[in-house]
Write a protein that binds this DNA or RNA. Structure first.
Lengths: 204, 204
DNA sequence: GTCTATAAAGGGATAGAC
DNA sequence: GTCTATCCCTTTATAGAC
């Protein structure tokens, strides 16, 4: 509750810290977490590896901070959409668009989340990854089940299978989508929804 | 061309070699290639790490042999399908079914191919991974483009985007599909095709 | 085909000077 | 906030005995 400085995170997020974290995220995303050494990160930053430990406790701390920040933002977006109380079809559209926008804005973070979650989840420290996955599943299957009731989605479809299908197909786009490329996140989301909805949308 | 022994691979594939390779594949798939140590593999086999080098030159050789074997088999299946000269819609069905069956039969290999290709492709030795990807792309986009011409698939669809969509959505299923579980490979392929084809199939 | 023993390199992390 | 210097551990891989 310090005066005159509202929006700044508490501990020395002096800019340099964020800068180093962004560099680490890029490397973790490109080479993989295990294959990236703290020396790689330091090299990219133009400092020596020992100096990194002035900013972070450990390599684990870095990826931890990256993932927590990303997930907080993503679930914040999701909760806003759910709170809007749209029809299931529109909620699904909004969730897909928000997800592709996060791939656009947080490309490295999404790649780390997709590629490293399984490895990291085995350590206690990253237990929140499993919790978030469960939350994620509850949210999406809820929307799908609602839509089956209202007739927005095809009657009799297997909600669990369709959920996994959507989850995987959305996030896996991070493998080829390039922010700033020919296709905007919105355009990809629309192309994706065109394929998806003509498949699962209920027909009268 | 040694007599009396037809179907055996040339160098000491005495069974033990295949056994060790299967163990390594499981570990590479579960923990990731970089995170799996040769000691992990040796432990799983009940021998010491040095003993592994009686069978294999290096850790790289192991994953190399695993991937080559898998890709040879997969592309063999694909070529048989292409040689049958089916209509584009049926060719696509057959390719999808063959892919899900390979996820069923070669689960660990598919997981390694999906998760480690990007990392391995940076080394010269694994240059064939990029070649195979290109071959893969040519094959699938050819089928899709054919189908647009014949009317099997929706006119005006973006063949490149749909190709990436199919490629990613098929292989990413390895993340949740469990061989021997409630859903058979065939059942998953059918569910998948039901979603996919009602989205991209041309309507008269 | 496996073990013993060990080399050589690279990994994460620390203490204290500047 | 970064550097110097270095510790300690793990990793891949080898040589030769059994």
């Amino acid at each position: 509750m310090s005066p005159h400085r509202a929006a700044e995170p508490q501990h020395a997020s002096s800019g340099r810290r964020a800068e180093l974290l962004a560099l680490a995220a890029t490397l973790f995303a490109e080479r993989g977490f295990v294959a990236t050494t703290v020396r790689d990160i330091a090299d990219a930053a133009g400092i020596l590896s020992g100096s990194l430990y002035h900013h972070f406790d450990s390599k684990d701390s870095m990826v931890d901070e990256i993932l927590r920040g990303f997930l907080d933002e993503l679930f914040g977006d999701y909760r806003k959409i759910m709170a809007a109380g749209l029809a299931p079809g529109d909620t699904l559209r909004a969730l897909v668009v928000a997800s592709f926008e996060s791939i656009d804005r947080r490309h490295a973070e999404v790649a780390i989340f997709l590629n490293e979650s399984k490895y990291l989840a085995q350590f206690e420290r990253f237990g929140y990854l499993a919790e978030r996955s469960a939350e994620f599943r509850t949210l999406w299957t809820g929307v799908l089940a609602d839509g089956v009731r209202t007739g927005d989605f095809r009657a009799g479809m297997d909600v669990e299978v369709v959920y996994r299908f959507i989850r995987d197909t959305v996030w896996v786009a991070v493998r080829w989508y390039r922010p700033g490329g020919a296709l905007s996140a919105r355009a990809v989301a629309d192309e994706y929804l065109a394929i998806l909805l003509d498949g699962i949308a209920g027909r009268p």
